[in-house]
Design a protein around this nucleic acid. Structure first.
Lengths: 218, 218
DNA sequence: TAGATTGTTAATCGATTAACAATC
DNA sequence: TAGATTGTTAATCGATTAACAATC
């Protein structure tokens, strides 16, 4: 029942930050907040906060501001955090294991119930209570266990093949950690995590900072 | 010797993708590419590609296009990939270990030479050839080993304290994986990786896709 | 030289900020 | 009721796209 049909991705990508700060405010026992106070905290302008939220509904009250708990609930609903999904991590390497162990993702309703790999030495093992299944049997396993989400942590050369296999298994969403662009059918939701890109950006600004330091020494 | 002084962050965040695609083109043996051909490949408009690159210099040639190898070199230089930095991963948990093992980061000139933790059971151990040092000794260790980059993979409650310790040790750059906002002095470069935020965005679009499917069934 | 394609300026589009009437 | 603060419209700013003269 959201207000606008096509909210821009720019706005969507700010929503998790709102949600995170509202969680912090709840922990601190803050009951209400004005867009101006929120602005000082979160670093968006008060105007932007009101604009962003009003894409989804009028959650505030004139003369009062926003009720923190209510707004957090609205954002959880907007972000779909009430939904639950079974997920499989493809690639039982270090990153795959790290992700499959991380508790934080259950907040978002993602339950990682298995890993998949091609390595015969791994298949059949349990890693922290989660089975490693044979990659080639993955579509069957996904259907049997109602797995709709695939998390790709394989080398980039294999990422596209993995995505095909996941879609064969009925995946509706893919979280891709491989540093490559994969192609998926229009109805499948793809979200990329670009660790390399992030590090390159860090590198860029380090170089810039170095250059600035060098200049000021002159 | 870059053309413009203040290139927007929007442009900077596209640079790693250019660099990645140029690497792929080199592997395929492609020697030159026009902005139009590049556009079809990378998904930015030809106009945007030319605009983006011209923030840093005129790397193309009229009637010819861009030399792939040369352009890749320019982008490496712009991104500062020729620089070398020693780095430490703070937090020797699963994610920390995954990152310290990942080879791909050496491309960017980041050499992870140690991990740090507060767990006495961990300190003094070696993890895949890298020592786990005592978090409390970190500033000293960083100075002795010329470590300028800190990678934070601790729980959010400890992230700010870790960042203080890193800066005490002389860090000029921080790569933060903790799902919280940390504050650093202006001269320190901070790059955040928001895994939770990324997953929340996936959740949002999954909910949207579900809603769309529901609608079309009616 | 003629054709191709860049580099760059101008036009458009979208996102952010400012302003203020509506209203709690 | 008066003061506060939202929701929303209008103004501004920045980013993207289009167009084309410059030039290889």
């Amino acid at each position: 029942m959201d207000r606008k049909d096509n909210v821009s991705v720019t706005v969507i990508r700010r929503l998790p930050k709102y949600h995170r700060y509202l969680g912090d405010l709840i922990e601190k026992g803050v009951e209400r907040i004005s867009s101006q106070e929120f602005s000082a905290l979160i670093g968006f302008t008060a105007s932007q906060i009101r604009q962003d939220l009003n894409n989804f509904g009028g959650f505030g009250q004139q003369g009062y501001g926003y009720n923190v708990k209510d707004l957090e609930k609205e954002l959880s609903r907007i972000l779909g955090l009430h939904m639950n999904y079974n997920a499989v991590v493809v690639g039982a390497g270090h990153l795959g294991q790290a992700i499959s162990n991380y508790k934080g993702f259950e907040d978002a309703g993602f339950n990682i119930i298995a890993l998949a790999d091609t390595d015969p030495a791994m298949i059949g093992k349990e890693l922290h209570g989660k089975p490693v299944v044979d990659f080639n049997e993955l579509p069957k396993y996904m259907k049997e266990h109602d797995i709709k989400i695939g998390i790709i942590t394989v080398p980039k050369t294999q990422a596209q093949a993995v995505s095909y296999k996941l879609i064969q298994g009925g995946a509706t969403g893919i979280w891709n950690f491989a540093p490559t662009d994969i192609t998926v059918p229009g109805e499948v939701v793809l979200e990329n995590v670009r660790l390399n890109d992030s590090l390159f950006v860090l590198s860029y600004f380090l170089k810039e900072a170095d250059a600035k330091r060098g200049q000021s020494k002159k």
